[in-house]
């Protein structure tokens, strides 16, 4: 199976100096696969740098549209059966591609996620290693496996992290790719995986496919800045509004979210739920359209999706 390796980038010229040559080497070792840098309107000369330094990589210069839009455009332009999405700060192992594409070849599989490690080989705590989820208080809570001994064999997972995943383009097109509802970023990959399971497909985790995600200095272990928390909280609400179809669980959303406005004043802090709620309300019609489509296309219940993704069914 041929795959196009897509590296999404926004003002990451320094990072591309490591990620592009690693992707080119992996693509060459696996028998030759195209590598594309999807540049989301960088202003730091990223495109010229890639063209000048790595002529074998194609550069797709895109208008500013955010992470999801850049991925959608690059996957739409690809001419291969599969695509591999990579963040610009992800450096792939030379042999990461073979196992990823072997897992993807199963007919009911939509996507396969990589194993994300730190430069020292330990598991990252920020990206998705074997993801699962549970509905609680009106929101989907995501769990990432952090015990290396639990990640030795290929297994199902809720979603493949958009920073390192392979996907079948035909199924991607049927799902409509990343939903712009979540612009500028966060939760689009969770939404995609959840909808894929809902359509009757599977999402897998392949620990043999290793990519290095350098999370940088210790400072980055701090909690996320308030603006990012707000964006992520807004998208978590939209995710529930769009995807949670079971009436019994959805009633809990109503109760929980009404309480948030008060919680925000009482507890405060991380994140500001009232502000997130108001921002989500501005996208209510869009979320409603997505919900109607999910209702038409869904073949599995919310509980079935989470159970299957956790390997419990």
């Amino acid at each position: 199976m041929k795959a196009t390796l897509v590296i999404t980038n926004h003002n990451g010229r320094e990072l591309l100096g490591k990620s592009v040559p690693a992707a080119l080497e992996a693509a060459r070792r696996a028998g030759g696969h195209p590598v594309v840098v999807a540049d989301d309107a960088s202003t730091d000369d990223s495109a010229a740098f890639v063209r000048g330094t790595y002529p074998e990589a194609r550069v797709l210069e895109l208008p500013k549209g955010g992470f999801g839009a850049a991925c959608n455009a690059a996957v739409a332009e690809a001419e291969t059966e599969a695509a591999v999405l990579l963040n610009n700060d992800v450096v792939v192992a030379p042999d990461f591609l073979e196992s990823l594409l072997t897992a993807l070849a199963r007919p009911d599989v939509f996507a396969v996620g990589c194993k994300f490690v730190n430069p020292d080989g330990s598991l990252t705590d920020a990206l998705g290693n074997r993801t699962s989820g549970r509905w609680e208080g009106g929101l989907l809570y995501i769990h990432h496996e952090t015990r290396a001994e639990e990640l030795t064999e290929m297994c199902p997972q809720l979603y493949a992290n958009g920073g390192g995943m392979a996907l079948r383009r035909e199924k991607w097109a049927a799902l409509g790719g990343f939903d712009p509802l979540y612009r500028p970023l966060y939760w689009e990959d969770v939404d995609l995986g959840y909808r894929a399971w809902g359509r009757g497909w599977r999402v897998l985790y392949e620990p043999a496919s290793v990519v290095v995600h350098d999370q940088g200095s210790t400072m980055r272990r701090l909690h996320r800045p308030a603006g990012i928390e707000l964006m992520s909280a807004k998208n978590a609400i939209l995710f529930a509004w769009k995807n949670l179809l079971e009436p019994r669980l959805f009633r809990r959303v109503a109760l929980a979210q009404a309480r948030w406005a008060a919680d925000d004043v009482l507890i405060g802090g991380l994140p500001n739920r009232t502000a997130a709620l108001w921002r989500a309300l501005r996208q209510l019609r869009e979320a409603g359209r997505g919900r109607a489509e999910e209702q038409r296309e869904r073949e599995r219940s919310d509980e079935e999706i989470l159970a299957l993704a956790a390997g419990d069914a």
């Binding site: 800045p225 405060g268 802090g269 991380l270 500001n272």
Partner: peptide, 10 residues
């Protein structure tokens, strides 16, 4: 940052 009513807890 501004616009965040948090900190009541603190």
């Amino acid at each position: 940052g501004p616009g965040f009513s948090g900190h009541l807890k603190l």
